[in-house]
């Protein structure tokens, strides 16, 4: 009996973790504040921004496409029997379309990008910190925060929404394929139904949300990398914790976004 009650020691350990988490969030918001401050100061590193956008988009396109396709496929296959049971199989495109565009597409794509991009940024900036490349930039007159951090956060904020739209479309394609093969629904009919079903109330919150997702991914990746602890172990930790923290924050942002858009719906 007594063993099932957590000891004071365990509670204090959990509290310590929690405290650590909130400290991190605090530091992260300072980092974000610095980002906004340096975002609007000259000079703009436009070339580097374009390079980052290109690389991020290019490197994640395949992965996002693949996952999107499979998600669309699986979602449709799995829910088909139930929909048939309810006699609502003709509502299939509506159901899949709305759930992918509003929730599944953005979250899955953002999670994939957290794994791919946030960890990449964390490792890259981390190793630059450890090998003193960031210091070298600083002494050669280039503000490394502007050159490395601002460009990367901007790039994710711009590119993740694009990747999300791309992922959504491929997922719908996957779903349409299943409908086409199993339910003899033509692609044209499928997509017409989907776009009829989608309203601005579905698209706008999802779009706004995806910009925030992009921002969070870039912010966390840069934060973890920029303040990487010394040593090659530090680089690994940076990359790893970037993914964990980014994923966690993505869900929190998602929760807030759903909550807020729900309020607007009520009106």
């Amino acid at each position: 009996m007594a063993e099932s009650i957590p000891s004071v020691f365990e509670i204090s350990k959990i509290l310590g973790r929690l405290k650590q988490f909130f400290i991190q969030i605090g530091e992260l918001s300072f980092f974000a504040r610095r980002f906004f401050k340096e975002l609007f100061s000259v000079p703009f590193e436009f070339k580097e921004l374009l390079r980052q956008c290109y690389q991020m988009g290019n490197r994640s396109l395949m992965l996002v496409g693949m996952t999107g396709f499979i998600i669309g496929l699986v979602l449709t296959l799995q829910s088909r029997p139930t929909m048939i049971q309810f006699g609502a199989v003709s509502m299939m495109p509506n159901m899949v379309g709305i759930s992918i565009v509003r929730e599944i597409g953005p979250v899955i794509t953002a999670l994939i990008c957290a794994g791919r991009i946030a960890s990449g940024i964390g490792a890259e900036l981390g190793s630059m910190r450890v090998t003193e490349q960031i210091d070298a930039m600083e002494v050669s007159g280039t503000n490394p925060f502007k050159y490395l951090v601002v460009t990367r956060i901007l790039a994710t904020t711009l590119m993740i929404p694009i990747l999300i739209v791309f992922g959504d479309l491929i997922a719908l394609l996957g779903s349409a394929l299943v409908e086409n093969l199993k339910g003899q629904v033509s692609f044209q009919l499928y997509f017409n139904t989907v776009f009829d079903a989608l309203s601005f109330g579905d698209l706008i919150p999802a779009t706004i949300k995806s910009f925030f997702f992009g921002f969070v991914i870039g912010l966390v990746g840069c934060f973890k990398g920029y303040y990487c602890k010394k040593g090659t172990v530090g680089v690994g930790i940076s990359a790893n914790t970037a993914v964990v923290m980014a994923s966690l924050l993505l869900f929190i942002v998602d929760f807030i976004a759903v909550f807020v858009s729900d309020i607007f719906y009520e009106l």
Binding site: T131, Q133, D135, G141
Partner: peptide, 24 residues
């Protein structure tokens, strides 16, 4: 400043490394 570990930017070529301080 010559850094202890050279601190060359490893995503850039030697040429770009040398051009980097000239940017500003």
């Amino acid at each position: 400043f010559l850094f202890q570990g050279s601190a060359l930017y490893d995503s850039m070529t030697v040429r770009e490394n040398l051009e980097f301080p000239m940017r500003r």
